[in-house]
């Protein structure tokens, strides 16, 4: 089913990203091999101007890929009206073997792309470009990931046929024996929910207070926040939004009838998780003395993003259950 506007839009975006990142990787290879900060050779001067091009191309490419995650989810939602049995993006993603893999890889990649942008923003703040080699090695490591991402996406789109009968979210997320990324294998109990929200609040501690292993705790806590947050939203929060105990689905939250509540919910969860990990990541570069001031500033900004987005996520996700408890069902 490659010939729909959505498939073509997705493919165009991904091919653009591929072109930009491969061009960027071409400079990246030369930087890794020949970069010498102390040299004054024509090659070094050429590389110093080319890193601006490569990093800009990379930023664009990564932005396009992040954008393609959003496009993929919306595209899957629009495919649901074409596939028999599918009622939202869940059914579309399960229509063949590559849908969920493509989505999962994109979700992980978006974090890794974000980290590159973070390192790049740090690097260009110093006239010595102390992280340029590391940044380009990282860039080269991202290339196979990007190619796998685009391959899976293409296989997914290619394998979609309107005559395939797939499962709707009512089946997938209600039966514990039907798994989707392992998220629905068990439902969140009250104690799990309490532990999750207490864990969220505890995350503020390593974010703002410094103590032994605080950065490691923050990194691990933020990394766990995203998958557990998705699970809690799917199995605990979503039935309250839908006002239906058996309707558990992360994708229906993106629909207009639920006021697109999924977008702020997932975006705040992503921002909280990413900025938490980002604070810990930046701490690893403290040994570069000329970056210390910049790292301090950027960590402060990330902490603010973490705090506000986490508070927003907690508030919004608890709003629906609390509304039910206070005002009763619809």
């Amino acid at each position: 089913m490659l010939v729909t506007s959505w498939s073509i839009g997705l493919s165009v975006t991904s091919l653009l990203a591929l072109f930009l990142i491969l061009r960027s990787a071409y400079t990246g290879i030369r930087v890794v091999r020949f970069w010498d900060q102390s040299a004054d050779t024509p090659l070094q001067i050429r590389l110093e101007s080319e890193i601006w091009l490569s990093s800009t191309l990379m930023e664009y490419g990564l932005f396009f890929q992040i954008f393609s995650l959003l496009l993929l989810v919306i595209a899957a939602d629009s495919f649901a009206s074409l596939l028999p049995g599918a009622m939202c993006a869940t059914g579309s993603f399960l229509a063949n073997d590559y849908g969920m893999k493509s989505l999962a890889l994109k979700l992980v990649s978006v974090f890794l792309y974000g980290f590159w942008i973070l390192i790049h923003r740090l690097d260009i703040r110093s006239p010595r470009y102390p992280l340029v080699r590391l940044k380009n090695v990282y860039l080269l490591l991202l290339c196979p990931l990007l190619i796998t991402d685009i391959t899976l996406q293409t296989l997914y789109l290619q394998g979609l046929h309107p005559d395939i009968i797939t499962s709707c979210c009512g089946v997938v997320f209600t039966k514990p024996d039907v798994s989707i990324l392992g998220l629905s294998q068990s439902m969140a109990s009250v104690s799990t929910v309490v532990v999750f929200y207490c864990g969220c609040l505890l995350l503020f501690l390593p974010a703002w207070k410094r103590f032994l292993f605080s950065q490691s705790l923050l990194a691990i806590g933020s990394a766990l926040l995203f998958p557990t947050g998705l699970w809690i939203v799917t199995t605990f929060v979503s039935p309250y939004v839908y006002a239906m105990p058996h309707h558990r689905c992360p994708f229906c939250l993106l629909h207009a009838e639920y006021n697109f509540v999924g977008y702020p919910l997932f975006l705040s969860l992503y921002l909280a998780s990413f900025s938490g990990m980002g604070v810990a990541l930046l701490a690893a570069f403290r040994k570069h003395s000329d970056l210390e001031g910049v790292i301090y500033m950027q960590q402060k900004e990330l902490r603010m993003v973490l705090s506000w987005s986490l508070l927003f996520f907690i508030g919004l996700s608890l709003y629906f259950p609390l509304k039910y408890l206070v005002l009763g069902g619809e």
Binding site: S5, L10, V12, T13, L20, L57, L71, I74
Partner: peptide, 24 residues
């Protein structure tokens, strides 16, 4: 809204990508 987003991906992104190398 989703159609607007798709059209943006179709048209504005390729144009922006095409202007990077000349800008550099």
């Amino acid at each position: 809204g989703r159609d607007i987003l798709l059209l943006f991906a179709f048209s504005a992104l390729p144009y922006l990508a095409a202007t990077i190398i000349p800008a550099w």
